[in-house]
Design a protein around this nucleic acid. Structure first.
Length: 499
DNA sequence: TTCCGACAGTGGGGTCGCAAT
DNA sequence: ATTGCGACCCCACTATCGGAA
């Protein structure tokens, strides 16, 4: 199969908004693929390379050679080229990598170059990724979609599920189960503004409320002496968390899979800021990053994924000592729930996760069974500049620069945000900020600091990037405030007092 | 007919290691 | 020694489609 066929498919997928039509287009490309190139085709249709890291990014793909006039590259040929490039990563030979890139891209047409660049940077943007590919795989292999999805979650890979579906059909898919030592996509939580709303969504069902720790999500597999620790994206970080490995080995069982959070604590048991856990997790030394578990997926040849939450928690409590579990309360009473939230926040944690005790462990899903609740802070800030958007925001001013007032009438930048804007707001702010424009610098439009915006955020973090030494975490727009002038915006002193 | 779950897209700040300067 | 890039950690939010209610 030619790369050009894949690029044409991707263009057809982009051209329609119908998800069914997208899946149809993906399926017809799958039907054309030879058996020996199927894995590459599945990966590429889903917008991902088969290599975890290539050392290439947007910068490494500027200054490309002139494109070829006619398409000639085969799909497998492209995969082999990226294999070679990936092998160079880590050897330190930039010149070799550059030569390989020039060779590959020099054989690609202009369309193919652009598409390959998107593939490398993860910006294929065809309105279809894993989920649509799974749909196409199910259609072509003539197996139920639910079987493909389930296998993909349990194998931690759509590619593995696709291979099973094509090789052995529904039987092969069904044979993919939870395997100790093979990471599973973690279950995720949806969110609610407060515990009252979360409990309401549970419709009176019995719930467990867990403390939400602000660390690194970990999945820990142990098979006798073998321990594997992976992150939310299933990266292996076993070597960086020796304390977690030790604790896993100390638990009274031979084989298990645990879900939890790794977190750096101070001597007195207070959680350290996320930045410190992150730093300590990226290297060794400098304090103990301990695990705090909240779920168990497998214990000594017993799969627990399909057991209800209350059953899994009973197993967890029997396996893991309390000092390595997250704080938890089981209740259906709002006042008890609110008290637990207050206590958890007072202990320095990020928030809570409300969990329906009846639901199974839905690997890879952001289900309604788990709902996170975190407190939100707000500030009235002034827009200092705006950036032109890309993709569906092309032609709109999108990403806004935020500043707090300082003592001598100036402003201190605290970060940027593009979140929380409706299309209507994007249209309005494009017009508004062009009216306030003072100068341009690349894709940045500087404006007179007159527009006040109410910003929600999760907290403040230490910053070396911004002049005030602090930055907003997860900033998003709530609304523009036309009832306030810039002189009434919050000050950097107010911000520092919050930190 | 309306509602809502799941997806994809659009980017944010911070951390590290590594190579080029 | 400093800087820029790539790869991952943590993410929130809106628009949209299509099946569920």
């Amino acid at each position: 199969m030619l790369l050009a066929d894949l690029v044409a498919t991707s263009q057809a997928v982009s051209a329609t908004r119908s998800r069914k039509a997208k899946a149809e287009a993906l399926a017809s490309a799958l039907r054309q693929a030879d058996a020996d190139e199927l894995e590459t085709v599945v990966a590429y249709l889903g917008g991902t390379l088969r290599q975890r890291r290539t050392g290439l990014g947007w910068r490494g793909l500027t200054d490309l050679p002139p494109p070829a006039g006619e398409p000639s590259l085969g799909v497998s040929e492209v995969h082999e080229a990226f294999e070679a490039i990936s092998a160079i990563a880590g050897t330190g030979s930039q010149a070799l990598r550059r030569a390989a890139v020039v060779d590959l891209f020099g054989r690609a047409t202009a369309d193919e170059q652009a598409w390959l660049r998107g593939l490398v940077t993860g910006e294929v943007r065809q309105g279809a990724l894993d989920a649509q590919v799974q749909e196409a795989v199910a259609a072509v292999a003539e197996v139920p979609l639910t079987s493909v999805r389930r296998a993909a979650m349990l194998a931690g890979s759509t590619l593995a599920a696709a291979v099973a579906a094509f090789d052995g059909g529904e039987q092969a898919l069904a044979a993919i189960g939870l395997e100790v030592g093979r990471p599973v996509l973690p279950m995720l939580a949806s969110s609610a503004p407060d515990v009252g709303a979360a409990l309401h969504k549970m419709r009176g069902a019995a719930v467990a409320i867990d403390a939400k720790l602000d660390g690194i999500r970990i999945q820990v597999h142990r098979d006798r002496d073998d321990v594997l620790v992976v992150t939310r994206s299933l990266d292996d970080i076993t070597g960086r968390l020796p304390e977690v490995v030790e604790i896993a080995r100390s638990l009274p069982a031979e084989r298990f899979v645990l879900d939890g959070e790794a977190l750096l604590l101070t001597e007195d048991g207070r959680p350290r800021p996320f930045q410190e856990t992150s730093s300590r997790t990226a290297q060794a030394g400098g304090g103990v990053v301990a695990p705090y578990f909240f779920d168990v997926l497998h214990l000594d040849d017993r799969d627990l994924l399909d057991e209800p939450g209350h059953e899994r928690l009973a197993v967890l409590d029997a396996l893991v000592p309390q000092r390595h579990r997250v704080g938890r309360v089981v209740t259906d009473d709002l006042a008890t729930a609110e008290q637990f939230v207050a206590d958890t926040l007072a202990a320095g944690h990020e928030g809570v996760v409300v969990k329906d005790l009846a639901v199974r462990y839905e690997a890879g899903r952001r289900g309604a069974g788990w709902i996170k609740v975190k407190p939100v802070h707000t500030l009235d800030l002034v827009v200092l500049a705006v950036e032109w958007g890309s993709g569906r925001r092309q032609g709109w001013l999108s990403n806004i620069h935020l500043g707090a007032r300082d003592a001598d009438g100036g402003f201190v930048m605290l970060g940027k945000t593009f979140k929380g804007m409706t299309d209507e707001m994007l249209a309005w702010q494009t017009d508004r900020f062009l009216g306030l424009e003072t100068s341009r610098d690349g894709h940045v439009v500087h404006v007179r600091p007159e527009q006040v915006v109410e910003i929600a955020f999760d907290g403040l973090q230490r910053s070396t990037r911004y002049p005030g030494g602090v930055a907003l975490r997860f900033a998003r727009v709530l609304r523009y405030r036309d009832d306030k002038g810039a002189h009434e915006a919050d000050t950097i002193d107010t911000v520092r007092a919050m930190a």
